[in-house]
Structures are given as C-alpha cells and as structure tokens.
Design a binder for these strands. Structure first.
Lengths: 158, 158
DNA sequence: GGCGGTCACTTGAAGCTGCAAGCAACTCCT
DNA sequence: AGGAGTTGCTTGCAGCTTCAAGTGACCGCC
C-alpha cells in the first residue's frame, strides 16, 4: 500500500504492522462476499443479495418489512434494493404492497415460494459459512472477531 | 441467519456466539469495499479495483507484472482484470505488451501518467483507511485483526 | 512430428451496481 | 392554508462483474 515517499502535506502512511493487517483484511473483504455469492449461485441460482432479503423478511413475525428497514438491515442502498425486489417479485418470491398510513412507504413481504426457497438453500449456505469461517477459528477467536468487527461497524455505517 | 428449525439432514446451524460474530463480519465485508470505492470515486474518479492495479504495479521494480500475477495479487478474476486493464489502457494509465518467451502471457506496465495518478490519489485513500479502520483500534487489536484475517485467508484463496 | 491436454488471456452477453434525477407524499413553519 | 424542505422509494443509464465460450500457445507423451 505504500507508494510515494514524499508528498506535499504530511501523509501518515500505514505502519508496517498496520499494513500487515490491512492487506489481509482487504483481501478477506473482497473474497468473502465473492465466495458467498459463488456458492449461492451455483447451488441455488440466487445472489447473496437476494438471500439476505429472504433471510431478513423471514425473521419478521409477519414476513414483512418496509423497503427502508429492509435496506438498512441488509446494508444495501435503496436503489439496489428496489431493483432486487422488483426482480424477486417477478420470480414470485416476494410481494409488494403500499402502506395504508404513509403512502410513500412500500412493504415487501415474503411469499410461501420465497420461504421454501430459503429453506431449501439455507443449509448449504450455512455449511459454507462454517467451512470458510467458523471451522477455522477457536471459540476465543470467534469472540475476538465479534468484538473487532463491532468496533469497525459504526464508522462504516455512517 | 437461523431460518427453519427442521431440515432433512442434520444442519449444524450457527450458535448464538457465531451468529453474533457472523452478522457484523458480513456487514464489514460489504461496507468496507463499498466505502473504499465511494471515497476513491468521489475524490479521484477511479474505482478501488483500478487503484489496486496501480498499487501493485507501482510496487514492482520495473512497474510491470503479468496479467496472471496481477490478478492473483489483486484477488480478482482474469476476466475482470482483462476488462479493467483494457479500460485503463484506453485512459493512458497502463500499457500492455506480450512476453517474448511465452506468447500466451501479457505484461501490464504502469505509465508515468498512471504513477502520477496514484501519487495524487494515495494520500486521500490512506487517510480514509485510517479513519475507517486504524483510528478505531488499539495496537493490540490491530495485531488480533492481522492474525484473524490471516487465518481466514487460506480457505478463501482456494 | 503431432495430438490431447492444459494454460494464459480475451471476448460477448446478461445481469447487477451506483449515481443522479424524479416523483409523490409527508412535515414543518408561519 | 400553503409553500419550502424532507422523506421514501423508483427509474434510467453508464459502467462494471460474472460466466461461458473462444483463441492461441505451450507441454508431455507416444
């Protein structure tokens, strides 16, 4: 990551230790989503983005969320979600209906077909997560991982 | 991530602790690349994928790498790199020339324009990395982060 | 030599992503 | 009331990513 040595203003380049952490973090950040995506596509024919929509809707008591809430939970942009839900609606996995009290809001709801797709796909996905992540880590390391990622989230969410 | 409770074969769902680590990890894995991309686009007009190409080429003594090596270093697919380098060549940041001993191989080389772009862009990028990641962590945490990500890499690289 | 297999890379098409723009509905303020 | 500003969501488009297929070039083996 270090490139030029002399720059007009005093740039605080990464230290050696920081670089040694940054490079693999960057790599994990690239490869992990790729791996999730590939596995779900090959074995289930859907993207990870779709899977997340299914998961979050299924976690609601009424299988329903407003587009805004759903976007927030899935860490995606409104635009992206709009496109994704449109495509998933066409395939019969979710439905959309307007909110009665605030007509700007749209609710996305999981259909039976969507739920059964999720149930068919989830075991393979969980197995993959286990294989790629949790089978490699001790209990303590999992705890460290949780603590570290939670520390990084606030600045990324904003 | 937990969805159905009863599935044909015995699916080992994630424990509570694992889920508590998985959700933020997934989120970081999504948001971190997004954030890198947004910052570089806004302030430099290039994608993070392009930036990585520039960085890896600039780190070579002769500013040159074969497409294969470059793809491996940047953790990207050959196809993606091919498209990217084609676009960057058109903008004058890299050049391509065939290898003299193995005519399947192409070398990508960083131009002066490419290097000066990188030097202009790098400080802002490093500042962003610092703001998003290293300013939030103690020295010990950085070390934990390095150790954890290094443990996850092997299974992802394969 | 020459033929199957692999390797390095490129290409094209389909689908997704991000941004900017747009629209209607809601809120606030006077 | 009513206008300015904000919110929730959608749309269109340009650009990127992915997969599958294709093209040469190299290797090993008979």
């Amino acid at each position: 990551m270090s490139t030029a040595r002399e720059v007009p203003s005093a740039t605080r380049w990464l230290t050696q230790d920081e670089t040694a952490a940054w490079l693999p973090l960057l790599r994990v950040g690239q490869l992990l989503p790729q791996a999730m995506d590939r596995q779900l596509r090959k074995e289930a024919g859907i993207r990870h983005a779709y899977y997340q929509v299914l998961v979050h809707l299924s976690a609601q008591p009424d299988r329903t969320l407003s587009m805004g809430e759903l976007a927030r939970l899935a860490a995606t942009s409104p635009s992206r979600l709009s496109h994704a839900v449109a495509a998933m609606e066409e395939r019969g996995w979710v439905t959309r209906r307007p909110c009665s009290t605030d007509r700007r809001v749209q609710y996305a709801g999981l259909t039976d077909a969507g739920l059964s797709l999720l149930e068919r796909v989830a075991p393979g996905h969980v197995a993959d997560v286990r294989r790629l992540v949790f089978d490699r880590l001790t209990e303590d390391e999992v705890s460290q991982l949780r603590s570290l990622t939670l520390k990084l989230l606030p600045s990324l969410d904003a």
